[in-house]
Simulated assay, not measured.
Amino acid sequence: MMTISPATYTWLVDAFTDHEIELTMFSAMFVTGLTPVEVFQRLGLAPAPADGFPALGDMDSFAAYETDGGSVLAAVGWELSDYELGMRLSVDTAIVSLYIGVNKDRFTYFADGQEVTEFEVAFPQGRSGSDPDRLVPHLQRLGMPVDEEDDDDGFYGRAASSSALALAAIVTGAHLTPAHLTRPGLTGTMASLL
């Protein structure tokens, strides 16, 4: 079995970074044990075929790809998941909603219809939720700061984003690789989720 680390997801952070201005902006949802078709069914959406993740300029759609352990959905510019959507999708499973934006970033772990752990991607020490410390062993293994006194110098931007993606893959089992993007995927419009 592959060891997942922050370096595992630098390719995805790079894909959603405008390198001219060094701005990373994306939203992802890692879903345990559901295929993209099942995700779309739970959301009441009609899917269309996808030919890759949305490009940096595509602000109107999201794409979903099947992984070995579930599905990963991604969008650019919009927050893919809100609280109600996360609660609804996580019934009888687990999901991570991850948003990296200009003035805000958020990691939220939902399980069995509950928000378990939430924190700012660049500040995992400020966790909240019904069980805010549930993911601490994974945070520590990934080298993420977990306590107020932890040294968090350098833990922002690309380091924080790739660590959050690795954490999402670890806790959901939905590990996305570039090879998954060569398989058929599904797409939907952001307007259908709002």
Rank of each mutant, 00 (worst) to 15 (best):
E118N: 13
D60F: 12
A50K: 01
S161M: 03
I21E: 11
F107G: 02
T3S: 15
S130Q: 12
V76K: 01
L56I: 02
A174N: 01
F119H: 07
E20N: 15
L194G: 10
P184S: 02
T177C: 03
S97D: 07
M144K: 05
G126Y: 14
W78V: 13
L135E: 11
W11S: 09
P145G: 14
A7R: 15
G154C: 11
D131V: 15
R134F: 07
E148Q: 10
A74N: 06
V171E: 09
L80Q: 06
V121R: 04
R183Y: 04
N103P: 00
T177N: 01
D82L: 02
L89T: 06
S71A: 14
V102H: 10
P184K: 01
P124V: 00
S128G: 15
L34C: 02
W78H: 12
R141K: 15
T93Q: 10
E148F: 11
F155S: 07
D58P: 09
L73N: 00
G154E: 11
G129F: 14
S130T: 13
V72I: 01
T10Y: 11
A164I: 07
D58Y: 07
A75Y: 04
E84M: 04
T187K: 13
L167T: 03
L135F: 12
V102A: 09
R127L: 05
D18Q: 11
A122Q: 15
V136F: 09
V146Y: 09
A159Q: 08
T8W: 15
P132N: 06
M190P: 13
I170C: 00
G33V: 02
D51L: 10
Y156F: 15
D133H: 14
A111L: 04
